[in-house]
């Protein structure tokens, strides 16, 4: 039975297209104690990281997801006849991380922090579903309020917003010299 549990979780992750959270697994597998589910999930991810396979289980946006190992990228692109995936532009990334650290936030705030107008970037980020509008601020002009999305977390393989680069990590980069690219 216990061995089954691991397999069941594996199958669950396999059929999930969005990250599958531990809570959801627990919710569905009521007949198993939570502790056992947690242990089985941990063993399963460990198995994938120890035994190198073509695919692996990643933890992103608060859930588990199957993904291919990144070194096989070249071959997969060949199979899918897919060109290079587009990276975010420098300005988009800068706008995005401003939002990530200052959310909930507005266009005026983002532009003030970056010292440049960010309206164009916001449009791109909305299209890419990396940010969303969550309402309007109760201040003059009723500006729109922006937040990052679940897809944002998945995009950077972050489990939650707490996984954003920490103060210490940032300080380390600044000390090293942060020139990007």
């Amino acid at each position: 039975m216990k061995k089954d549990l691991k397999n069941i979780i594996e199958a669950f992750i396999f059929v999930s297209i969005d990250p599958l959270s531990l809570d959801k697994i627990k919710d569905i597998l009521k007949e198993f104690p939570d502790k056992e589910i947690e242990r089985a999930a941990a063993e399963l991810t460990e198995y994938y990281s120890e035994n190198k396979r073509g695919i692996t289980i990643i933890q992103a946006s608060g859930g588990y997801l199957f993904a291919t190992q990144n070194e096989y990228d070249v071959y997969i692109k060949r199979l899918l006849k897919h060109e290079k995936k587009q990276k975010l532009s420098r300005e988009s990334l800068e706008t995005l991380s401003t939002i990530a650290y200052h959310q909930p936030t507005t266009l005026a705030e983002i532009s003030a922090i970056r010292g440049v107008d960010a309206s164009h970037c916001l449009k791109t980020l909305l299209e890419k579903k990396l940010i969303k509008i969550v309402g309007r601020k109760k201040s003059p002009g009723k500006p729109l309020i922006y937040r990052t999305t679940k897809h944002f977390l998945a995009y950077f393989e972050l489990n939650s917003l707490e996984d954003l680069p920490s103060k210490e990590e940032i300080e380390k980069i600044i000390a090293e010299k942060y020139e990007e690219e």
């Binding site: 990334l93 800068e94 650290y101 970056r114 995009y155 690219e181």
Partner: peptide
Amino acid sequence: DYENIKAACKILREKE
């Protein structure tokens, strides 16, 4: 503030 954002971008870029 801006310097922090820039440094965070560098880390996020690696993750991306």
